[in-house]
């Protein structure tokens, strides 16, 4: 899975937000709010990676068990795909 090009992620007031730019801004209007894990996964999946790689990355970064990490990654990927943000 890889997130399409055309988004900018920044922290504003301590919260991570993503906004569409360029061509993407014509297809998608609005702003995406991400929690800490979401921001981490967004950055990670900005390059092509598998779900398993996402789980491994999450485990290396945060003190969580594998089951929870996998659930987080699967939910994240599902949301990205459902919104049409995946390549």
């Amino acid at each position: 899975m890889k997130i399409k090009k055309g988004f900018v992620l920044r922290k504003v007031g301590g919260e991570s937000v993503v906004v569409p730019v360029g061509e993407m801004s014509k297809q998608f209007h609005g702003m995406i709010n991400l929690n800490e894990t979401g921001a981490f996964l967004w950055t990670f999946f900005s390059a092509e990676h598998t779900v398993d790689e996402g789980v491994a990355a999450l485990l290396a970064e945060y003190d969580v068990d594998e089951q929870l990490a996998r659930a987080d990654v699967e939910q994240f990927v599902k949301t990205i795909v459902a919104n049409g943000f995946a390549e």
């Binding site: 900018v8 920044r10 906004v19």
Partner: peptide, 24 residues
């Protein structure tokens, strides 16, 4: 974070990458 949420509806977000990122 509350201020950020309220501020977003009162600013102009350009659509080119450089100016959008800089706005945030």
């Amino acid at each position: 974070s509350e201020a950020a949420t309220r501020l977003f509806s009162q600013i102009l977000l350009p659509t080119d990458e450089e100016n959008a990122a800089k706005t945030l």
